[in-house]
Amino acid sequence: MTYAFKDLALSCVGQFLQYFLNKRNKHVTVLVGTAGDTGSAAIESVRGLKWIDIIVMLPKGRCTRIQELQMTTVIEDNVTVFSVDGTSDEIDGIIRKLFADTAFAKKHNLMSLNSINWCRIMVQIAHFFYAYFVCATSKLEDSLAVVEVVVPTGGAGNITAGCIARKMGLPVQLVAAVNENDILHRTVLHGDFSLAESVKASLSSAMDIQEPYNLERIFWLLSGMDSPLIKKMMEEFEKSKRLQLPAYLHKSIKDNVTSCTVSDADVIHTIRHCWDENHYLLCPHTAVAVTYHYRQSDIISKSIARCCLATASAVKFPEAVQKAGLTPEVTTDIKMLEEKSTRFAVMKKEDEWEQILRDTVEAIAIRRES
């Protein structure tokens, strides 16, 4: 367990993979780019498994120390970790290049455990049904009444699961709560799917993403599954990194999702507020969602329940807890991370990241064949 909500989905995905790969006597190489939490959860889900090798690329200095240690202290034959002098978006770009090389991807059976993996989205749909029925039965007289679900959002995987749950008939109102990397908020508000000048480092580091790749899935789902349109849109975005959504698609998104953006100052205030009010310690990502709740508290309607999805334990983010003037929790297993040996390789800014990654995949294949 890595103290992230992604443990739930990835523990299922890892076991599904192992079961079917064992039946087919087949090996896969998993490529994962991470902004913090996904990497450690993905490693934990497949570490030591016979039919799977995993390569994780983390953005150096943009994860918390505990997040980095959860990845770099895993010393297993099937785990390779790179500390990359870049952002998570830059890392995702390199990984996409390898998957775009279909001959290379097929030869080495490449796959990902980021939320680009459909199986992760599928498992996470269950979170929304669980949240709905807990809120509906405990807060509402009418079990078919609407529940508002506030989702801390980075790569938009979890909010995609929520959109699918809505399509399945679950009566939820979705709120995408983002940090100052606000492309999703601008998309919902103005239909402006365009990159900002740079990725901003924040306390909610796992959400420091300017290209939330799952938005493509949301566009497709809410456009009436218009594949030619979405293909054309994403090709345009890939070239210019700017895109104005068609009016009908923008309206469809606004009908399904609302959004807000939250600053680090808001996060710090919310962590403190929640502790003072409930004696509950929030992680900075969860605090992004709870900030929305506090903003709405003056106008909350008794006819609707609200649920804020938690993404991780505060134990992984002592820096944010300290900024809120509180004392971080330290569990035994987290404390032990500091005493473990680490193993990782470094990708410097001037290195050829794509070639290094290709060489690593090839080396794994040679080792597997020998």
Rank of each mutant, 00 (worst) to 15 (best):
L195I: 00
D92V: 03
A177H: 07
I159G: 07
L98G: 09
R120T: 09
N117E: 15
E148K: 14
A165P: 09
S112C: 08
I183Q: 00
T102R: 15
R120H: 08
T187Y: 10
L140R: 12
K167P: 00
C119V: 09
I116T: 08
N117V: 14
A105W: 09
C163M: 05
V199K: 00
K167Y: 06
R96Y: 02
M111L: 11
I159N: 12
F133E: 12
A126I: 15
A165T: 08
A126R: 09
T187L: 13
T153K: 08
H190S: 15
L113H: 12
F129H: 13
N109E: 14
P152T: 05
H127N: 15
L113N: 07
N117G: 13
L110K: 11
F104P: 04
H108Q: 05
F129I: 10
T187N: 07
A161N: 09
H185N: 15
L170W: 00
G155K: 02
E180G: 08
I183E: 03
Q124V: 05
G157R: 06
E141S: 10
R120S: 11
C119M: 14
V146T: 09
I116W: 03
G157H: 08
H108I: 05
F128R: 04
G169R: 02
T187W: 02
F99N: 07
V172N: 03
A105G: 13
A103L: 14
S143D: 08
G154C: 07
F99A: 06
F129S: 13
L170V: 02
L195G: 01
I159C: 10
I164D: 04
I159D: 10
I121G: 01
V199F: 00
R166H: 00
V172R: 02
F133Y: 15
R120K: 11
A196S: 07
S115H: 10
F129Y: 14
K139H: 05
K107E: 15
A165I: 03
V178N: 14
P171A: 01
A161S: 12
F129M: 12
